[in-house]
Nucleic acid binder design. Structure first.
Lengths: 129, 129
DNA sequence: ACCTAGCCTTCCACAAACAGGAAGGTTATG
DNA sequence: CATAACCTTCCTGTTTGTGGAAGGCTAGGT
């Protein structure tokens, strides 16, 4: 199976698949003409990565997850620890964004948004109390 | 005032201030020895940028905000539109992260996290239903 | 036989927003 | 006069890809 089909099946752009190969995340076989050739196994890995990335894991975390997946002697505690770590980061990010959201919506509410230059948003950014 | 003090007053690393100058966001005067020299006005701008960045505006948005701030003929509607735009992006990001969080915490909950290799997290990533 | 379309290849450049570090100049102080 | 604490410029690396150039392979149509 060539990269175009692998792309559709894995829901990853061909360019991204080549990139993942570049950084050693997934290998590929080659046809006689030099085209990349993917087995079902490799498509499976690509989908695994796609799913992991969609949950926000970094590429390096995906690398670790893949190696855990490939290791029959893994302990689920390791996987869980990785996931918990990631979850905490996500939750922290949400907190930060929520704080921004709250401040911003306050500011927006207080701004008339008309043709006049007077603007509480700019006043706030400028540090005027 | 030299960059060290400007850094403390603006709560921006000196390195970042130099970077902002590089990309034309804030200028600086120079002393005879070549050191950067900042006026109160310029510190004020740096703080404006710091505050804007802390609310998640991109550097380019900061550039626009600064130019609006400097323009006495601006209309507050323009500022407000920019802020609303940004707010929507933040809210969308929060939605995405919340979805990740929900999925992840479900998966974590379902995983024993012990010495055994059996792991629902990996199973999910692998696409097994 | 030739042309075109649609695949595929490699390689290079760019994105955002800085951080780290090298190599070296300046200034105040002990 | 040496040292510390500033400051300077310049180069590299980070993360995760995307866009494009230049060119090879293959099938189908005329």
């Amino acid at each position: 199976m060539k990269i175009g089909e692998a792309s559709e099946l894995s829901d990853l752009p061909a360019k991204t698949i080549r990139y993942y190969e570049d950084i050693g995340l997934v290998q590929s076989d080659r046809l006689d003409n030099g085209y990349r050739d993917y087995s079902k196994q490799q498509i499976h890995k690509l989908r695994f990565i796609q799913r992991s990335r969609s949950l926000g894991f970094t590429v390096e975390q995906c690398r670790t997850l893949l190696s855990l997946y490939d290791d029959p002697d893994r302990s689920s505690a390791d996987v869980r620890a990785l996931a918990e770590n990631h979850l905490e980061e996500i939750e922290q990010k949400i907190q930060e964004l929520a704080a921004m959201r709250d401040t911003l919506s306050q500011l927006i509410k207080s701004c008339q948004g008309d043709h006049r230059p007077d603007c509480p948003i700019l006043n706030d950014l400028a540090g005027s109390k």
